[in-house]
C-alpha cells in the first residue's frame, strides 16, 4: 500500500480516480488563494487626520465592529499595514509626510480616500488644503461624505476587498507599473512542463 503524507492511502486511485482517495479536498489556483487571503486580512494603518478619523475609530469600536472583516488591528507602524485610510483633510504641510508613510508601507498596498476633504478638498478650497489626496498617493476607493458614516466606510472597505479578491486592482497596477507587481515563482518538480505561477500578473 502506497501512503503519501497528506493524501493517505493512494493505492486505489489508479482504479477509481479521485473517488479512491481517503479525504476530500478542494482545488484552487494558488493565485486565487493569495488574493482571497489578502482581501481577508487587510490591516489598516492608523492615519487619522481630522473629523473622519473619529468616524474611522467609531467603525473599529464596539458598535460597528470592524473585526468582523478581520480588520480591527489598526497598525501604528506603516511597515505592518497594507491599507492606508486617509481620514480627513490633507494640508500642504502634511502632504510630504503622508507620502513618506505611504512609501514606508509594504507592497501590496491600497489606499482609501475617506471623506470629501481627502478626495477633492471638499469645502476647503483654499491655500492650505491639498485638493485631493490622489495628487500625492494613488487612491483605490473614494468614500464620499463629510464625514462618511461608519456604514459608508465599511462599504468602501468591502468594495476594496472585492476588488482585491477579483484581482482587478493588481491587474490595473501592473498595467501602469504602479505597484503590487510582485512575482512568486513556486518550485515545481523537474519533470513538469508547466509554466511557473505568477502572482499578481492577471
Amino acid at each position: 500500500m502506497r501512503r503519501l503524507p497528506i493524501l493517505g492511502d493512494v493505492s486505489r486511485v489508479s482504479d477509481d480516480g479521485l473517488e479512491g482517495l481517503e479525504h476530500n479536498f478542494v482545488t484552487a489556483r494558488i493565485e486565487d488563494l493569495v488574493k482571497w487571503s489578502r482581501a481577508r486580512s487587510c490591516w489598516p494603518a492608523t492615519f487619522g487626520l481630522a473629523c473622519c478619523a473619529i468616524e474611522m475609530m467609531a467603525t473599529g469600536a464596539a458598535h460597528y465592529d470592524l473585526a468582523r472583516y478581520g480588520m480591527e488591528v489598526f497598525r501604528a507602524s506603516p511597515r505592518q499595514a497594507d491599507l492606508m485610510i486617509v481620514a480627513g483633510r490633507v494640508s500642504q504641510k502634511m502632504a510630504p509626510i503622508l507620502r513618506q508613510i505611504y512609501d514606508q508601507m509594504m507592497e501590496p498596498k491600497w489606499v482609501i480616500s475617506m471623506g470629501v476633504c481627502a478626495s477633492s478638498g471638499g469645502m476647503f478650497n483654499n491655500y492650505a488644503i491639498v485638493q485631493g489626496v490622489d495628487q500625492v498617493v494613488p487612491v483605490d476607493v473614494y468614500a464620499p461624505g463629510c464625514p462618511p458614516g461608519p456604514e459608508t466606510l465599511m462599504h468602501a472597505i468591502l468594495t476594496l476587498h472585492e476588488s482585491i479578491r477579483t484581482g482587478e486592482l493588481t491587474r490595473r497596477r501592473e498595467a501602469n507599473d504602479g505597484g503590487a507587481a510582485i512575482h512568486v515563482e513556486a518550485p515545481l518538480p523537474e519533470d513538469t512542463t508547466e509554466q511557473p505561477v505568477q502572482l499578481g500578473s492577471r
Binding site: 510630504p96 483654499n126 485638493q131 495628487q135 500625492v136 498617493v137 494613488p138 501602469n176 504602479g178
Partner: peptide
C-alpha cells in the same frame, strides 16, 4: 491682498501614477 482660492500643490516628489 492674498487670494483665498486654490493654489497649485507644492508637492514635487510624487511620481505620476495615472
Amino acid at each position: 491682498d492674498v487670494d483665498t482660492g486654490r493654489i497649485p500643490v507644492q508637492f514635487r516628489e510624487a511620481p505620476v501614477q495615472r
